[in-house]
Write a protein that binds this DNA or RNA. Structure first.
Lengths: 335, 335
DNA sequence: TTGTAGGCGTTATCAG
DNA sequence: CTGATAACGCCTACAA
């Protein structure tokens, strides 16, 4: 391997490549960023030098100079839950093909750290930002406005989006579940969910439609803690005395629905005859459990891809948009 | 809101803050990076100016100058699968608390894009790199060596680690499963798994121990495609004629194990009496399926945390280490 | 405790 | 098509 110039710093610089190829640094830069503007023979010499010296361009310097970082930030609650994991993965893949890297920024379950996370993220001068939900503090909004960076808010609907929106209509989803139950002849309903924003909206959409269509809402329960199988069991035990001959139950999360299904069996409540159950998420437990149950499916991969596409478009000067995402009720043995 | 100086660029610079606070830029820098070396009164004035102007330090400029990016790269196959999703999440959280941001780099299922991904990632001059597995091309090794950056390889064991290793002993894991079966009195065995590196190693560890202890290995099957429920069904149908009174089957992935469990039921093969089954991953299907089955559990969160801790230590000048990660066989109804 | 000078490695811009 | 020059915004090193 050739000797590697490392004059003062520790790594090969553009000037080392330029010297080795007998050209000016600017020409090396062009070979990398605008090959069309360089003669083929020159480009070949430069490439040879790059290869031989193992030159890896310093993107901090390039970004500082060009004011383009070629990086976008993905600000999400977490990626351990399958849904956002898949979404961020697809988002990253899609933008990677367009030459952008992704800075991962985690805000925690309820987005509690969003402001702090956003501040440090913006220090990186991302060319675009992906946000989760549409509930952002005034501080966050000011930071983003001052940064003048394209923003995509995903997952949530909003009547006052900051920029571009890639959203699931959670209220409409709840209403669709109610309609689904009505179509099966139900008239008595129950709902439960966490106090997280989206779950609440789904539940409200469900409740509203139930009342609109003249149904009876026996139970509308807000969980104290977060979604869990145990919470589902507890809810069902509480509800049991109120259940009549036939009730339809919408649980705003599959874990809770699964707990309810399990507990119904323990209590001898027939599913779906006496109690019909619909969950949310179409997760593995809804499909592979002991007793598969109906659930609403939302496509994380599609969300990530739409978000990437929309952000790319914005970064290329396109206008803000609003992209609705579909959902689907997957009927199984519980309804 | 105060008028925001934006002389030539579009955003507030350190000199704007300095001017507003009546100090030199260097003093503002110190307030942010070495508060101890600034008088309290001065710091207060500077903070006021920062707040008022909405100053967000440009980390590209800072990194270029200081030669520290305060960023680490996480190079993983993907984050859609629960395991790496959880690992990367914990990794990011842990390093976030230490002031590092995480650049997410995806190499695809078999790590096929690793070289290209690594090259662009290193352009960002990360202070540390997290890699998945220990099978890296000469190109990758050269890139990392030239970059002189601390590296942690996770997930896989290796006899020639580049630097620090946070690893599960997949071969030992396979052997432990064999021992587990022997302890239940088994003497006839079968194994199946994908051709992915780790799955193969687990299977080899299993097979070797079976033979060492004098067992019979009826089947040692390499799946053509990737892990799936369907593949598990197919494998079991193929194996069925070879099964005697009592056989113990190690499937190197839970999806495959689940398929086998389902197909055994269809074929009327009694589990666990005639066929004992152990999967890998301790995923939801192994716990919540129709027929829960024994599986080997590995802790993604622990892996992410150990990797973060080890990388942090390396970045602070600590020596390379080798951190083994535990696994656990979770017995269920299938054995 | 604070300030000054200079450079980090690249690219925009304009000239040839 | 190629090159010279001057930023980009911050921090290291040294000086006061």
């Amino acid at each position: 391997m050739a000797r590697r110039p490392r004059d003062k710093s520790g790594s090969v610089r553009i000037i080392d490549v330029a010297t080795a190829a007998g050209v000016a640094p600017m020409t090396v830069s062009r070979v990398l960023n605008a090959p069309d503007r360089v003669a083929a023979a020159t480009a070949a010499r430069v490439h040879e030098a790059i290869e031989r010296l193992g030159y890896v361009p310093n993107l901090m310097a390039g970004g500082l100079s060009s004011r383009r970082s070629r990086m976008v930030a993905a600000v999400v609650p977490g990626i351990g839950g399958h849904f956002f994991g898949v979404a961020v993965q697809r988002f990253t893949e899609f933008l990677g093909e367009a030459g952008y890297q992704v800075l991962l920024a985690l805000t925690g379950p309820a987005g509690v750290n969003e402001d702090a996370v956003l501040r440090s993220v913006l220090g990186r001068r991302p060319d675009g930002v992906l946000l989760t939900g549409s509930d952002h503090s005034p501080v966050a909004r000011r930071l983003l406005r001052d940064a003048a960076v394209p923003v995509v808010e995903m997952w949530d609907t909003s009547e006052t989006p900051m920029d571009t929106l890639v959203s699931i209509d959670h209220a409409g989803l709840g209403a669709a579940v109610a309609d689904f139950f009505f179509a099966s002849g139900h008239s008595r309903f129950a709902a439960a969910g966490s106090r997280f924003p989206r779950a609440t909206i789904r539940r409200q959409g469900f409740a509203r439609r139930v009342l609109e269509r003249g149904g009876t809402l026996l139970v509308d329960h807000t969980l104290n803690g977060s979604n869990s199988i145990t919470a589902g069991r507890d809810v069902l035990r509480e509800m049991a005395p109120l259940l009549g001959d036939r009730t339809a139950f919408f649980s705003c999360h599959d874990s809770v629905a699964f707990g309810a299904v399990m507990e119904a069996r323990v209590l001898g409540i027939g599913v779906p005859h006496r109690l019909a159950i619909c969950g949310f998420g179409d997760t593995e437990v809804s499909r592979f459990s002991d007793a598969p149950f109906t659930s609403v499916s939302v496509d994380g991969k599609a969300m990530g891809e739409s978000a990437a596409e929309a952000l790319l478009d914005r970064m290329n000067g396109g206008p803000p948009r609003h992209i609705p995402l579909p959902f689907e009720i997957i009927p199984r043995a519980s309804t």
